[in-house]
């Protein structure tokens, strides 16, 4: 058992280092040019958003349409701080403050609304996120209203993005494999049974919501410090939908699914950019087709793991045996 845990950790570390090294090399040889680096940043931010929403919707079973709201809190908090303290410590402080602010609001909003179920919760979170957006729109003297904040110092380079993305994935995947994480999953499975088995469902819903909001806040902070500009429009209803699409495409309850979907979507969108006028039409058709033919998403609720490789190996062996 212990060996397994340790080897798991080793595999994770090795794959992380490999991913980092490969992309670093690609950047070094300019195969990933400046334009593609923007795609890379988008992919990283989308991974953070999708994995954190997956914790709320995929694992805890709470349908949220308000992720963009939490993201915007992180973005504005970090932007306002880095605009005043344009240094690396200021950036780190900004990301942290953005995440904490988002988590606080997430917890506060979660407490009353998480009593709602299913679509009602989705609509309430959507409304909450719209309210956040409207507040940012109207706090003219702080957020500069509809015109948005410009010239936010660009601190979030690829290395920072990688650290935050890897950190998010590790922490959330660790969490769902802990007793606390299982408590969240049991709520998705059957809330009444979970309560009867001693799981405080309200507490664990709020925890999932708060953690999810925390990382959405990080994603927002990274967005602000990557693209130098934010306005309330960016964090509208369609942003929440975008994140939900990634989560469902990857598979509810599959972290590797969220990552794969975020990467695929990033690559596909970049590729479709050359068909600018029909880009969104192709995207929507793709979405409909995938949902019709694979409604459980790419991964279902499974994770990519070594056991899949060993299964593949086995089936290969057994085929060989027959021949």
């Amino acid at each position: 058992m212990k060996k397994l845990v340790r080897s798991n950790l080793a595999i994770k570390l090795v794959s992380l280092i490999l991913t980092f090294a490969i992309i670093q090399l690609l950047i070094y040889f300019d195969i990933i040019n400046d334009y593609l680096q923007a795609t890379l940043a988008t992919i990283c931010i989308n991974i953070i958003l999708a994995v954190s929403l997956n914790l709320i919707t995929g694992f805890t079973g709470q349908f949220s349409l308000g992720h963009a709201g939490f993201m915007s809190i992180g973005a504005y908090a970090c932007a306002l701080i880095t605009l005043r303290i344009p240094t690396i410590p200021g950036f780190i402080l900004g990301v942290f403050a953005g995440a904490v602010a988002a988590a606080l609001i997430g917890g506060l909003v979660g407490l009353p609304t998480l009593r709602l179920r299913g679509d009602y919760l989705a609509i309430a979170t959507l409304g909450m996120s719209e309210i956040i957006r409207i507040v940012f729109l109207n706090l003219d003297n702080i957020t500069n209203g509809a015109a948005g904040l410009q010239d936010i110092p660009q601190f979030a380079n690829w290395k920072w993005l990688f650290i935050y993305t890897a950190g998010t994935v590790l922490i959330i995947s660790n969490y769902i494999r802990s007793s606390h994480g299982r408590a969240c999953i049991s709520i998705r499975e059957d809330e009444i049974a979970a309560e009867a088995m001693g799981i405080n469902s309200t507490k664990y819903k709020v925890i999932a919501f708060t953690i999810g909001a925390f990382f959405a806040g990080i994603a927002g902070a990274l967005y602000a410090t990557t693209f130098n500009f934010i306005d309330p429009k960016i964090f509208g209803f369609s942003k929440s939908i975008d994140v939900l699409v990634i989560v469902v495409l990857g598979g509810l309850g599959s972290i590797s699914g969220s990552i794969i979907a975020a990467v695929l979507l990033g690559v596909v969108t970049t590729y479709l950019q050359s068909f600018a006028n029909i880009q969104m039409i192709l995207y929507s058709v793709l979405l409909i087709i995938i949902m019709i033919f694979r409604p459980q998403g790419l991964m279902g609720s499974k994770e990519v793991s070594l056991s899949i490789f060993s299964k593949l190996g086995n089936s290969f062996k057994s085929k060989k045996g027959r021949v």
Partner: peptide, 10 residues
Amino acid sequence: RIAMHKNVKY
């Protein structure tokens, strides 16, 4: 294991 959660201290 979920039903044993209440004893978990970490």
